[in-house]
């Protein structure tokens, strides 16, 4: 069954930018044939890094060039805020519902970026895009509460009736800027580890 499906998928148009290994066991280590241990590389293990790099480097170079020349245009991003994902672009106002500590006037940077898109490319995070690559700046413009919602329950012929009113806090956030500051696939080196004990 799996084989059939694989063949079906193989016929479909899709990107072919993978250098994953499908070499059989015997071709790698002919001397070792263990019944219990598999020497086959795990799926998605990159065996030839050079070859792998060749396949995607062109795309990444193009993206980096476009960003360097500032030709990427207006960006949109999917950010994770207060437990929800929001698709935002520059100048947007979005509402965070429920208790959320930032106060009005606070300038915040939204760091959990799941996806960034431009007209020519999309950077998809797994689950987040590389830290420090994208800067999303926002300002909290207003904090207030929603309209009054009535929670009313009633059972017929059972003398049961309850009424409650509630309002949920709401925070309005203006997105000031979304920009790519780093280089794709070139994360900054980790520094400051010399002084750390753990």
């Amino acid at each position: 069954m799996a084989g059939v499906v694989r063949r079906i998928f193989a016929n479909l148009p899709r990107i072919n930018t993978c250098n994953y290994v499908k070499t059989p066991l015997l071709s790698i280590l002919p001397s070792v044939t263990s019944k219990f241990y598999s020497n086959v590389p795990t799926p998605y293990e990159i065996v030839d890094a050079q070859e792998d790099r060749k396949t995607y480097q062109g795309v990444i170079d193009n993206v980096n060039r476009q960003v360097a020349e500032k030709k990427q245009g207006r960006l949109f991003a999917v950010v994770h805020v207060a437990g929800k994902q929001v698709k935002i672009t520059e100048g947007d106002v979005f509402i965070v519902e429920g208790y959320w500590p930032p106060d009005a006037g606070d300038k915040i940077s939204l760091d959990k970026v799941l996806l960034v898109g431009a007209s020519d490319f999309t950077l998809i995070g797994r689950p987040l895009v590389q830290r420090g690559l994208v800067r999303v700046e926002a300002t909290v413009i207003e904090k207030n509460v929603s309209h009054t919602k009535t929670h009313f329950r009633k059972k017929r012929r059972k003398q049961y009736m309850r009424i409650n009113f509630y309002r949920t806090p709401r925070t309005m956030v203006r997105v000031n800027r979304i920009e790519i500051v780093g280089e794709v696939n070139h994360p900054p080196a980790v520094t400051g580890l010399e002084t750390r004990i753990f």
Partner: peptide, 28 residues
């Protein structure tokens, strides 16, 4: 988010389906 992308960002959604296609064929 996926629904939003499917509606308003067709190219991004295409990219996601491409990835899914690849993974599905690799993993069966």
């Amino acid at each position: 988010t996926l629904a939003t992308l499917a509606c308003w960002e067709p190219f991004t959604f295409k990219a996601l389906t491409d990835i899914a296609h690849k993974r599905a064929s690799e993993d069966g």
